[in-house]
Design a protein around this nucleic acid. Sequence first.
RNA 1: GCGAUAGUAGCUCAGUUGGUUAGAGCACUGGUUUGUGGUACCAGGGGUCGCGGGUUCGAAUCCCGUCUUUCGCCCCA
Length: 439
Amino acid sequence: MFETLPGFRDFPPEACSRRNHLFRVFRTVARAFDFKEYDAPILEPLDLYVEKSGAEIVGQLFHFMDKGDRPVALRPELTPSLARMVAAQGNSLPKPIKWFNLGEHFRYERPQKGRGRSFYQFNADLLGEINVSADAELIGLLVAIFETLGMSSNDFRIRLSDRATWVSLLNGLGVSEQALPAVLNAIDKSGRRKPEQTMESLNEAIPDQGESLWQEIQNIKKIDSLDALAKRLGTLGSEADALIHQWEEMLSFLSAHGAKEYISIDLSIVRGLAYYTGFVYEAFEASGEGRALAGGGRYDHLVQKLSGNVDIPACGFAIGDMTLSDCLESKGLLPNYVLAPDLYLVCGEEQKKSGISLVSVARKGGFSTSYSFKMVGFGKQFKEAGKSGARYALILGTEEADSKRVKVKDLRTGAEEVISQNSLVEKLEEFDATGGITT
RNA sequence: GCGAUAGUAGCUCAGUUGGUUAGAGCACUGGUUUGUGGUACCAGGGGUCGCGGGUUCGAAUCCCGUCUUUCGCCCCA
């Protein structure tokens, strides 16, 4: 027997329909925000990812040499492909660019709760706009997706932070430009590491000041309101005014989006990646347990880094399907879908062929229809009709066939009505419009 | 890559100090039923007990290895 590779999943119909439910919501809400769907290759040159993330990334990729001796990798993320695409079309694209994608991604990592080697991600990015209203639009989209999936403010929260604020605060603490990436990285990890480990990392970045810096960082991480932030920034002069203004703008835009109730100001969010430049955020289940449901932020210089010539500001976020499915399931928000036809044909052996012709008419009229492939009795066929979950049985015996009619039985109410075969589709639509057949 | 946990039918699980032909429920298929359905009753199919080796007269059971699952570490784009 063969099994799926570790970290990969099969999707039999029920699981597939649950997955497609997520996809449907992603697409519908993204369109409501006027984001355009795009796609990119699943297989890319290995260097595309090395360029962005460094050589260490290779160990976490599915990669191999193709038959033309090209080093290639299954995509672990979409941003580099997006940057290439945007850069290729350069300045000819009207701004802002609002694009989204829904696709499978691959990472060669140890499978764990909420993390596999193959997973689906919804990516939304907004490029060519520097104003915070763009960042707010994306968080608005994220919130709208979660709300459409049935979650409320009791179910999830978005922790909002700002890299620019961190950079100013750290500058104020005497952290040099060169040491910044390492310090930010240590801050990002500090939430899931022992304090000693963080201090060690900080000492490496800034010799002998790790301990005092760690004290300050812990204080900053506790900031959870605009007032507290303003107080802390107060010592920085005019730079502080600009930062506070950005925060105020952001929060008032989020209010306008109806997203404010989901937002927690939380400076402990930094995100591991070096390329974030502005607001960053992560969505979590309300209890704070588990992996992030989604994450994103502003990355104003990444496109230039990857493309070499086109400089375009950008922000975006991604939602992974595994943590989200787990979360929705635990809240009973992933209903089991009934994959049922609308109609089921019940007929005598003599009427099989004309029955299938009738089925063909119903199908063209938009009604999903099944029938038994075997010659079995009426009783058996009714049993199968019931099991199929169909709303109506189409009954075609000698009585009906002789008079070019067909009996329609509402399998929920048990009521029946004999109608002309010519009017099948229109009568079925009528039955559905009035809530079925009643006696 | 490291540590822990588990693996018996499609699913959930029994299986005695090692002892005859490995079981149950659900699911599936067929029948009771050749014009009225999901119930009921009856029957059936389906297992190299994860895989490989070892101990033993005899292994689902004990030992070793290996693969896979789940959880944690590392990492988390």
